[in-house]
Design a protein around this nucleic acid. Structure first.
Lengths: 130, 130
DNA sequence: CATGTTCAACTACCGCGGTAATACTACCGG
DNA sequence: CCGGTAGTATTACCGCGGTAGTTGAACATG
């Protein structure tokens, strides 16, 4: 399970997954109303969910004639996969290059910088006793 | 020029752009032979280039009856746009969260960690006298 | 001049994300 | 029993990335 497949989710798909990850198993209507932004047609969400089920991203059980959908892939797996994908595509797999670019082109406040330093130190200690 | 549009390039498009960015203006055949990996049909590359020209990603001049294509968008703009896009989509815009995730899920050697530390220190000094 | 070569132009097709209308089905209330 | 309501199933359509065959025009060359 959780084969290292490369997930490449579209915008709506990602938003739907987020809803399911955050709010647990939900019916179509519940998913729909929890999607922020533009109000999509009920059938749009239903169709998308079915397509996503075909791809194994979600699953469903029938309860009282309604479909209750749940996420079938792990959030971390998807996130990692998509992030790795981009790092590979844009920065030839170099994490340092990616971070460097982000640091140079984005607004980064001091809190965030401090947080990053903390993360790196933590990571460093972890690598040490390898 | 360089409006802050969100570039979302496909795989082949990105590979083509990289060729044009690295090797300067080129004819279709030159672009094609510089694309690593799978050998695409000549017409595939030509078609893609035309589609990309429609979108303003590249431009061309005619020289000796041949089309010489050149990149019409800046590499940094595209890279930033795509990277920002993903950080927004996956990490709600939080750079720290993004980097944190990358650090936790990827193999990172010590050299890279050191490089990251260096980058952050550099960035810190830059923010200081702002 | 005829012919082959080298392009660009045009056309087509697939898959998929996204969006949705329409059709069907089952249940619920009177 | 019958009509509304809620929900799924079916079908359709657009845009775009990707892939490529076919056509047509111009040029080189014997």
């Amino acid at each position: 399970m959780s084969d290292a497949s490369s997930f490449r989710l579209g915008d709506l798909q990602l938003r739907i997954m987020r809803v399911l990850w955050r709010c647990g198993p939900l019916g179509v209507a519940e998913v729909r109303e929890r999607l922020d932004g533009d109000d999509l047609a009920y059938t749009t969400v239903a169709t998308m969910l079915r397509k996503m089920e075909d791809r194994g991203l979600v699953g469903h059980e029938t309860l009282d004639r309604r479909f209750i959908y749940h996420a079938a892939v792990d959030e971390r797996d998807v996130t990692r996969s998509m992030a790795d994908d981009l790092v590979d595509r844009l920065f030839e797999g170099s994490l340092a290059q990616a971070v460097s670019h982000l640091l140079q082109t984005r607004e980064v406040d001091e809190d965030e910088l401090a947080e990053l330093e903390r993360l790196i130190r933590k990571r460093k200690s972890k690598t040490a006793h390898k």
